[in-house]
Design a protein around this nucleic acid. Structure first.
Lengths: 128, 128
DNA sequence: TGACATCCAATGCACGCGCATGTAAATTCG
DNA sequence: CGAATTTACATGCGCGTGCATTGGATGTCA
């Protein structure tokens, strides 16, 4: 039965690879072409948007890192890109000046809302 | 039902992300630590090994490219690394001198056979 | 046959990533 | 309190990837 389960995992893995690559490549391309966003940039916006409803979405770097499959350094640079693009602002935390709060700017919220259908469309196409 | 299917794909996608990242990171780390192989390098050896049984596994670059989720340039460099490591040899094709044949060296076959259990073990761990 | 399109593989280049390290702030403990 | 440890984030660095281009070989067609 070990051998049988071994066969299963290979098939399962190649299926996972197929779906993952197809979807993530098209996500990357579509988001970049239509909205000028990389996939991990979109994902940061998504977390920020979900994390704190409408008001003024804000979250700590560490919390975002915990929700993403991205190293601390990669997240830091991704946020830098988003900040330069004016989609996000960093704000020092009053009570722990090591930590940063991230906030969506209005423009950031707009761009995210605009990109959301593109994102969902690609997922439906590849996972439905 | 569109909305419902939309919800489904999000869950499905985050599940795919979770499994893919966990497995591919551990594959990368384990193969590197135990056998000095990157994941895409292992995958090339795997295709070569499967592609032509024992005799002297050989396949065209294009055929390998078609079986992998890797660009032509990335494959070219991956093969260069394998060649430098002595695990693979390039041989010009007699009938079409644009094409290259790839062949596993004995050392390459050995290294692949040694790494195979590591690879399968990680997959079982994450997909069983 | 000669001009042009197509195909295969290699390479220049820019980019995003992870690892290791640096800096500053907070926490722990003698 | 003060030194050592830990935590949060930024940054230097090397690496693997994809895109665009190049060079060489093949195919096509008038």
């Amino acid at each position: 039965m070990e051998a049988a389960s071994g066969e299963d995992v290979c098939v399962k893995w190649s299926e996972t690879l197929r779906v993952y690559h197809a979807a993530s490549c098209e996500l990357e391309n579509e988001l970049q072409a239509r909205h000028g966003l990389g996939l991990s940039e979109f994902e940061v916006l998504q977390i920020l948007s979900r994390c704190c409803g409408e008001g003024g979405g804000q979250a700590k770097m560490k919390d975002i890192e915990a929700e993403m499959y991205l190293s601390q350094s990669a997240l830091s640079r991704t946020v830098t890109r988003l900040e330069k693009a004016g989609l996000v602002t960093r704000a020092a935390c009053e009570f722990d000046r090591r930590a940063n709060f991230l906030m969506l700017t209005p423009t950031g919220q707009e761009r995210f809302d605009a990109a959301k259908p593109t994102h969902r469309g690609v997922l439906v196409k590849h996972l439905a």
